[in-house]
Structures are given as structure tokens and as C-alpha cells.
Simulated scan of single mutants.
Amino acid sequence: MSELHAPRSLIVTLYGAYGRESAAPVPVAELIRLLAAVGVDAPSLRSSVSRLKRRGLLESSRTDEGAAGYALSADARQLLDDGDRRIYGRPAPELADGWVLAVFSVPESERDRRHVLRSRLAGLGFGTAAPGVWIAPAALYEETRHTLERLELGPYVDLFRGEHLGFSATAESISRWWDLGSIAKLYEEFLERHEPVLRRWEHRGADAESAYRDYLLALDSWRRLPYADPGLPPELLPRDWPGGRAAEVFAELHTRLRDAGSDFVQLNGRTARRTEA
């Protein structure tokens, strides 16, 4: 298994792609089979599932047949639903939509909460406008609110909507708020790994296990990028920005492989199918 694909991440990716069609738990034996196909051994799987349980994302349960299994918690479903809007094609941002500002203050005695808050805002795609003032496109407001409420961080934060009025040009300011070079590199690495996979599938027939494996690995790589990239309006980005091409490659892989791989998955007694764009 590649170092790029941690077992815990692959488990979340599997549930996001194929494990939400019903509330029924996924049997442990199925998790072992499906994760083995992408290089995760059983001990690593069990260790990662335990961590996800402690984080409140998975809940142990029994299937109708009495087998041990794991189901998504309500919080996990909310996280995945929020993620769908980013991962499967968020609307093109417009500069006129404005920005959401998160202004926070955390007492020194609760320094650990300050670290969690900063980490979550960064994980949502916020940039730093000033100490204690973080900024993101306004489209991220609802997801930000859900996340802060889930982590009980709301009392430390005020959220505002607004527009940038100067004094420097907005296109210049965002290079201070975000590291665009690092984000572009992530897109380039995605293209380097997964564009050749797409090219191969353009010249081969459907094979359920291979389609599942290639799709899950591509999704596991891709789903991080819309969080590193906050979704800035095109007029604020460099002319050769690789994000558009990377999004096209993922969309083509999703269309070509997602349902083709579902025949290998067969969760809860039926082929799992979704209709994301």
C-alpha cells in the first residue's frame, strides 16, 4: 500500500463512496475483503477502525444475520454529506459571493482548544488574514458552522460575511492568505498519479475489482484537495492553475469507475449505487 493512502483514510473513503445507501452496518468480514483489495491488512484495519470509533465516526453494531459490523455515526454522515458538495463538483465560485470571516479568541487556559480550532479551520480551507482572523469563500459558511458546532467550538468564534475593500488588490492579498504554490503542487501530484490511470481505462473493458481499486485510490487522493483548496474565484488564480484539469480527471474517473466497481462491493446484499455527478 502506498504511503499516500493511510488505512484510516481509506476506510472513510470506502464508507463515503459505497457505505451510505442504508443505515445497516458493514460486516467486519466485508471490510477486511474490501480493504485488502487496496493493500490494507486485517490488523491495520482493526486498529484504524478502533481509532475511528474513539473519534465517534463509526459505531459497532450487528447485521440482521448477527454478524459483527460497523455503521456510520450521525456525525460521520453529516461530515460526508458536507464533503459531497466539495468532492463531487461544487459550483464555480464568483468574486461577488464575498467571504466568510472566522474571528476567534480562546483563553490561554484552553490552549488545546485553540489548536483544535486552528487545525479545523485550516482543514476546511481557511486562510489566515491576521492573528485570530481567518478567511474563506462565503460558500464554506454552512460547512464551517456544522463543523464548529459538532466540535463544540462555536462559543470561541464569531462568523461574519463580507467583501474585501482594500487596500491591496484582492488577487495580491490571497497570496498572503493562502500558499497557492503548495496547493498547485498537490493538484500536479494528483495528475501525475491518476491521469495515467484514466488513460489506461480509456483502452480497456470493465473489470469490477480493478475499477473498485483504482476508483477508491483516486477518490482517497482527490477528497483531500477540495479542502486544501478553498475554491477561489478563477480571476484570482494564476493563469496556469492545475486545479481545473485535476477536477476533470477525477470527474472522468468517477463516471467511468465508480459504478463499475460497485459490482465488487455488493454491500448489504445489493450493489451499492450512487448518482453523484
Rank of each mutant, 00 (worst) to 15 (best):
D64H: 10
P238E: 07
R85E: 05
A218Y: 06
S182Q: 12
T63V: 15
A129M: 15
V249S: 08
E59V: 12
L237D: 02
A260W: 01
G123D: 13
S61L: 05
T128H: 14
P234L: 04
L151E: 13
E152A: 14
L79N: 02
G66F: 13
S175Y: 09
P230V: 04
N268H: 14
T128N: 12
S9N: 04
I183R: 02
A76N: 06
P155G: 04
D41C: 11
G154C: 15
A42D: 06
V116L: 04
R8W: 15
S221A: 10
L151W: 04
E30R: 15
L95G: 03
L165D: 14
L180F: 01
E108K: 14
F190M: 01
R239T: 06
R55D: 14
T13G: 12
E252F: 04
E276V: 11
W178V: 03
L236T: 01
L186R: 09
F167K: 13
G243Q: 00
R239M: 08
A208P: 10
S61C: 09
R213W: 01
R86F: 12
P91M: 07
D41V: 13
L52C: 06
V40Q: 12
Y187L: 00
T271P: 02
D259N: 11
G154Q: 15
S105F: 07
E235D: 06
Y156N: 03
E149Q: 11
S210E: 05
W178M: 07
S61D: 14
H203F: 11
T13P: 13
G19R: 13
G231P: 00
S175R: 14
A102R: 00
G123T: 10
T170K: 10
L180R: 01
F250S: 00
P137Y: 12
A208R: 04
L124Q: 02
A29G: 04
D259V: 07
A228F: 01
